[in-house]
């Protein structure tokens, strides 16, 4: 029983890491209805910028602030150069634009900094900690706490700030929001900046776990089923989806893997996502579109 619990808890904590990436997708989707394919590249860009600055001798906090400033600048640039000219275009057009953007950010990050693998030490031990009969990683606990703090912060941002309220209005009804004077370009820049901050947090935690390298962009592959399960429009859904995918992957790998020849986690989360699409297309917490006919 303790082995089952340990696997479950380990999977749940791994799922939190995926949820961190998924939150970035949700933010942009909520504000603009665009699936931002470049979110993984933003994770790489943020982590690579941060680690390059710390390697150049900047203290941790200053490197974090400078990276955040760069991510905000990137967000504003994306809004001006890519999104603004494409206002009123179809969602597929915007999606394709983010697809192109992802290659530019990936290539540009590696070109301007470098393609080496960097070690990122956040000073958080990644060692086993006994919690009763089970062992968990101290790093995973910190990651879970970070995700919790991030969700709380974003909830406050959306509930209490003017920008947050405007975002919710745009998400609910863009035309109505525009008619009452909400400026869409400024909002898009703001939400991309927040997504950049989320990418920084995710990039730091994933970078500390696996090194800062190109493969950080692969993390988004697991964020996709997380979004489908949780719902594209809900931060709570991203967290719930992450936990389900993490736990499901771990348990399937342990209990189904030996029966099916291993590597179950390659497809398990996607299988689960397809099942959700069939049964609950909007995901667990996603908004179900209401259409009058």
């Amino acid at each position: 029983m303790s082995f089952f619990l340990e696997t479950l808890v380990g999977g749940v904590l791994a799922g939190v890491m995926y949820a961190l990436v998924a939150i970035g997708f949700v933010l942009i989707y909520k504000a603009s209805g665009v699936f931002n394919f470049a979110q993984g590249s933003m994770v790489l860009c943020a982590a690579l910028t941060f680690v390059t600055l710390t390697e150049k001798g900047l203290p941790f906090w200053l490197a974090g602030l400078v990276t955040l400033a760069i991510m905000v600048t990137l967000a504003v640039a994306v809004e001006r150069v890519v999104l603004r000219p494409l206002v009123n275009r179809s969602q597929v057009t915007l999606f394709m634009a983010t697809l192109g953007l992802s290659y530019i950010i990936e290539g540009g990050s590696q070109f301007l900094m470098d393609a080496r693998v960097h070690e990122l030490d956040l000073g958080i031990a990644d060692l086993p900690v006994a919690l009763g009969p089970i062992q968990v990683s101290s790093f995973d606990l910190v990651a879970a706490a970070s995700a919790g703090a991030l969700v709380l912060g974003l909830a406050l941002f959306f509930e209490r700030t003017r920008v947050g309220k405007s975002l919710r209005a745009v998400a609910d009804d863009p035309q109505a929001a525009l008619s009452v004077g909400i400026r869409l370009p400024a909002l898009w820049a703001a939400v991309w900046a927040v997504a950049g901050f989320v990418a920084l947090v995710a990039g730091l935690l994933w970078g500390a776990r696996q090194g800062v390298q190109f493969s950080l962009t692969f993390v988004v592959l697991k964020a996709l089923p997380v979004l489908i399960i949780g719902g594209f429009t809900s931060i709570t859904g991203a967290i719930a989806g992450g936990l389900i995918v993490g736990a499901g992957d771990a348990l399937a790998e342990i209990y189904l893997g030996p029966l099916l020849g291993g590597s179950v986690s390659t497809w398990f989360a996607y299988g689960l996502a397809v099942a959700f699409l069939l049964v609950r297309p909007a995901g667990l917490f996603g908004e179900r579109p209401i259409e009058r006919v």
């Binding site: 082995f3 380990g10 999977g11 890491m17 696996q210 771990a250 348990l251 790998e253």
Partner: peptide, 9 residues
Amino acid sequence: NDQSAQWAR
């Protein structure tokens, strides 16, 4: 990039 299940085994 996630091997928690494999190392649990």
